[in-house]
Each structure stands twice: as C-alpha cells, then as structure tokens.
Nucleic acid binder design. Structure first.
Lengths: 207, 207, 207, 207
DNA sequence: TATGAATGAGGTTTCATTCAT
DNA sequence: AATGAATGAAACCTCATTCAT
C-alpha cells in the first residue's frame, strides 16, 4: 500500500494524533489476542484499547471479522516478505525447503497471535476459504510446492514424487508440531522442529 | 415448536421415577459439545435439548460453567474407573504405564467431547485449578506418578529418575499427540501413539 | 374499604397477575403505531411503553417484525370473526358482498392502526407474502371471491363473470378509497364508500 | 439496488465545467428516491452515488432534511414554471382550471419522486409547514385559488362559491386520486383523472 | 471548495441468570 | 422439584453529523 510509504515521510514528531485510528485498531486487536480468543474480545474493548471510536472498526474493516482478516493479512504479508528476502541467497531445493519450514516455526514461535489466528481462529469462519486473506495464506503453500517441484527437476527429490501430496504432509507436519506449543503456551523451537520435520520428510523424499 | 414435547413430561403425576432433569441436562450438553464449542452453546439451547427448564441448570449446577465441570467430572470418573479395572491384571511398571497411556489415547479418540473439555475448554476458566474437578483430573496424573515410582522401586526404571519430571513429559506427550487430531478432526490411533510415546520415553527412562 | 377499581388498571407492584408482558407489548405497539410509522418506533420505546423488558419482545415475537405480524394477526382474526358473525343472517350475494365491503371500510375507519399495517407497513417486508399472517389476510380475499361465485351460481351476477378479476377490482377499490383518508387522517365513511364502490362495481356485474 | 445510481455518474472526462457537487448530490438523492423511501437512504449512500464527500451535504444543504427540501424546491420551481408557461394561451376559468389540474396529474405521473416527496415524505417533518419550501408549494394552491376567483368574477362559477373550500376539495381530489397509483406503483392517467375530477367538481360549481 | 477522519447516540438482538410461585 | 416470566448487561453494528485541514 502506498499509505505506508507516505507515513514514513510524514511529520511524526510534532503531533501525537498522527497514527491513524485504523492502525491503532489493528494494533489493539493484536495485543488483545495475546490474552484471549477472538470471540471473547468485544468491539468495545478493541475500540477502547485503540483509543478509537467503535464505529471506526466498521468503517475501516467492514465488521469485526474483517478486522481479524485485516490483521492476519498484515502478518501474512510481513512474514512472506521476510521469507522471500531470506530465500534470496539460498541454493538447492533441500536448503530452500528447510528455510521455508524453519521460517514457519520461527514465525509461529515469535508471533503467537499470528499463529493463533492462522491455526485456530480463522477456521471457524465459513467464508474464510473464499476470502482474499485465504488467497494470501495460500502463497505460503505455493512456495512449498514450487520448491518441491524445483527439487524434482534438479534431481534432488525423487522423480516420481507426488509434489502436492508431499506439500500437504509438510504443511500438516508444521501444524502438528506447532499446535501444542501454541495451546499450552510452550516454546516452539524452530531449529529443532525444522530438523525433525526435514529428517522425517527427506527420508521419504530424497531419491 | 418443542413446546409439545415439554408438555408430555409436564403432565405426569407427581410421582418421581423418570430420569431426572439433571441427567438430561448433562446429557444434552455432551451432545451439543460434539458440534460446537462451549461458549457458543447457550443455556436456552441446553435446556431445550434436555427438555428441561433453563432454571434447573442453575439449581443443579450453580451456573453454566458448573455444568461443564459436572460433565467433565462424570467423564473423568468413568474413565478412571475403567482404567483401574483394566489395570487389575497387569503386572510390571512398564506394562502398567503403557496401559495407562494407551487408555488416554483410547479415551480421547473415542470421546472427543471429553478430550475437548479437558484439553481446550476448561483451560479458559480462571477458577479451574482450584476446583474439585481439577482434583479429579489430578488423579490421572497421580496414577502415572505412582507407576513411575513403582518402576523405580522395582528397578524397572532408573534409580535416579526424576519421577515428577518424567510424569510431566509423559502427560505433555499425550496432549502433544492428541491435540492436532482433535482440532483438525483426525484419527488419534491409540496403539500407534501409545507405542510411539512409550518408545520415546522408555529409551530415556529404562536403565 | 374494598380495593378500588383503579387498582385493576394500575400497575400493581406488590403482587403480580398483571396482564402478561406479551399482551402489554402488543398493546404498546398498537398505541405507538397511531402516532408514527413502524420503522421510526424503536424496540426500546415499545418496551418502555409496555413497561416490559426489551428482551421480551424477542422472546415472545422472535423479532421486531414478528411483533408487527403478531399484532396484525390479532386484528385480522378479530375482524374476520366479526364479519363471519355479521354475515350469518344476510341473504343474497349482493347483500353479502355489500356487507363485506362495508366491513372493510368500517374496520379501517375505526381501527387506523389495523389499516396502516395492512395497507402500508407490511408491504415493505420481503417475507410477508410467504408468512402465516399473509395467509390470514388472504381469508378476506377468499370471502369476497366466494360471494362472487355464489352470485354467479344464483344468477345474481353475470354467468360469464371473471370472479377473480372482479375480486381484484373490488379489493383495489377498497384500498383506493381507504388510503387517502388514512394518510391524511380523514374520515373513511363506511356507508358512503361502500355504496359508492358497490354502485361502481355492480353496474358492471349485474346481468 | 442503489448500485445503479452510482453508475449513472461514472467517470466523467476531466472537463472543468462539471456539474458541481451540489448538483450531483441533489441528482443522486432524486435517483435514490425512486427506489427507497427517504428515511432508508443514508447520507453515505447519497454521497457515494454523487461521488461527493459526505460533508458537502452539510455545507450545501444544512442537513439531510435540507437536502430533501432543496430537491423538492427544484421540482416545484420547474413544474410551476411549466404551468405558468402552459397557461399563457388558455382562456376561460374552466379551461385554465382544467389545465392546472391536468398538470398536477401529469407531473405526478411522470415524476414519481416529486410526487412522493410532496405527498408522503415531507409530511413527517415538523418544521415543514414553516419552511420556505412549503411557501413554494403554496404557490400551486394559490394558482388554483386565483383561477377560482377569476371564474367567480367572470360568471363562469357560482357567485356564492366558497373559493377556499372549493380549492381544498380540488387539491384533496388530486391527492385522493394520485396516492394509490403512487403507493402501488400504478399509472396515474392525467387526462382521465383530470376529466373525472373536473366533472365531479364542476357539477357542483357551475351555476 | 473539498476531504478524510472521527464521533456519539442509538439501533436491534442475545444471553446468562434470577424470581415468584 | 420444577416452571414461566422477567431482566440487565452487553453484544455487534449503523448513521447523521462535525471537525481539522
């Protein structure tokens, strides 16, 4: 969004009322999500935490659910940007795959809110799988698939590998390993989990 | 409208011999929990499903949360009874431990509602860890601890084993393995998971 | 001293047995409808006027619209009962038709709220034409049709009369004549209007 | 749906002589009034349809109601100009009266929005009868009165005619005949209705 | 002239809970 | 033991209107 770019150059020191309510609202939800689940957070609470008028939630995000999607979309964009950047220097399908997987654990570990939204909150919503946000979420899935295909082409992975199936196993594995840490509020060690998952998967993937 | 259904029960002579409303209410909640989470179930819904008056929930269980605890307590008693019975003929700490662990997976797999309450719903409540129900839940934890101590005494397990820590690892492992199956509604194979967990744990426990 | 008559109508704080809130709510809406249109009446206003809790509107009538339908249904039943009773002694299709038409004007004139609901408010609602209340409203239409058919059989009306069309003309005429009086709050003289409409219609109907 | 309204004002070429926002706002309301009643139209909707900022409604028209009055005033001026023009060549009180009456039906039939505002929307507002717009609306009433007086003077109408009363009867008749067509969205045939009304009125007026 | 941001008051509706009998 | 009636608090959401620029 060009809005972001503008804001960087805006005069921020002089006036305190500069951060627009939209940002404050999104930020407020993020903070509140650390403590309770989305359904038990009220719009009044969000507005109060954001020092914004309740109606602005509806102006900016359509409705309460839209706000959650908005927050998720932000997270997804950020993390996918970071992955793409980090992936730049990495050569070889295995290495790239490990980087991607590691990134998932790393992100989920460092940003529990992001993790909770993706793995728990959003699944309740009917419309989610038709939403724009879901399309964003699929980018990640696409990255994994692409790397798998690369690996098959380069000979790093089995020629007869069913890449889509393999992708599902990998994504399922990530969820599998992340969830307990998320719910019971324990560490989700990225290196350990990434190694574990890679080891499991590679023994079935590599030729 | 289900008014008709109610009337059937209403017009009965003041003789008490039918299944009391208390049981019907608990049963109703169990059924409803199969489909939605506790917070989205309303007391009106419960009462209707139980063909009971809403106020009876409060007479019998104090409040909505009390009802959940009541249901959980029932489940816990049942399953702990079953474990104790099943454990009768089993000799040896390892065997007994495996039985206990297997039972957990078996119960969670067969009774998702039980699993959900224990692993998800109940954790939201502040008072839970001071409740009677929590004491019941600790019995299970106690069983594991006792078996571990037995094993240490009998020499089946390492003499220097920190039994409390080991218990936590085991209970954590059970949760760990159960949760994804629960959330994503997949199978929780008791034998496979019990074997897996025992193998992992034993290599660290046995002398 | 015996309790004075006033107590019957006044609110009786110590003991209940008041007319139940459901009735008070319906009555309150009726009164409010005399002064403003349905959309500008708030549920809070209704509840206050009924000295009842706002939530009871939803318990008893489902929603605000349901309340309007409830009130209308009451009116329809009352007035149709009265027509049927009044029609008992009347012989001859013409006479019966006049009685029915006269009744419409008489009812609309005496009960502006009834008239407003039927002729104005209810038409905005999408579901109306599929509602039970609409079926009730059709009874009236059915009465007119039946009388027209009687008249055709008895020879009072033309043998080749399209009774359905004639019914529509008559009902349209009633609305046509009623509306201005309704909107501009003028008299809707039943005799005069009934005569006028009958004369217009009969000259096209009689053989 | 109001989407249509938006499209009407689609991206216009960057001509500088654009109709200013004030006109676009008034035009937008006119279009929206064809589909829903004034109360269900939101200022946001109006602004969007007009591709104007919501606040401009307040700059140009004071408030939402002021906008309605503005639109009505426009209509009234247009139609009264037309009447005056059409009346130029017409001789004789009867003929002039018929022309005026005919014009009312003609205008109402061709411009439902105009009709709705005059006959329905505006009557809810308390202040209306003290507003400038109401004074405009009285011009029409004045025209009728003037023609009646002319007729009395010229001997075309009874010498003892109560012209004010007669005016009311005529205006009432126009409303009487217009409303049903308006509400039930049927034709309002100007010739037929004008003839009918004139005939009714004249037989009581002519000496 | 025009705008984006913000707001307060109020809308309908839901729900856990209590009370009188 | 059981019920129907009632309730208060809060939920999500809408809208006309104002303000700073």
């Amino acid at each position: 969004m060009p809005k972001n770019a503008q804001d960087i150059f805006k005069k921020q020191p002089p006036k305190r009322s500069n951060p627009p309510a939209k940002k404050r609202i999104a930020a407020a939800l993020k903070i509140l999500l650390e403590e309770k689940d989305f359904n038990s957070i009220t719009t009044a609470e969000i507005a109060k935490a954001a020092r914004a008028n309740e109606a602005l939630i509806y102006r900016y995000f359509g409705d309460k659910r839209g706000l959650l999607h908005g927050v998720l979309a932000e997270y997804l964009e950020e993390s996918q940007d970071r992955i793409r950047k980090d992936l730049k220097g990495v050569k070889g399908a295995k290495n790239r795959l490990r980087k991607i997987v590691w990134h998932a654990f790393y992100t989920y570990n460092g940003n529990r809110t992001h993790a909770k939204i993706v793995l728990i909150e959003v699944r309740n919503f009917n419309g989610y799988y038709k939403s724009d946000t879901y399309q964003l979420a699929r980018n990640y899935s696409k990255m994994v698939l692409d790397v798998l295909r690369e690996g098959v082409e380069s000979g790093e992975f089995r020629q007869d590998l069913d890449t889509k199936l393999a992708r599902n196993v990998i994504l399922g594995g990530i969820e599998h390993l992340t969830l307990p840490g998320l719910i019971f509020d324990r560490e989700i060690p990225p290196d350990e989990y990434a190694d574990f998952l890679m080891e499991m998967v590679l023994s079935g993937i590599t030729p």
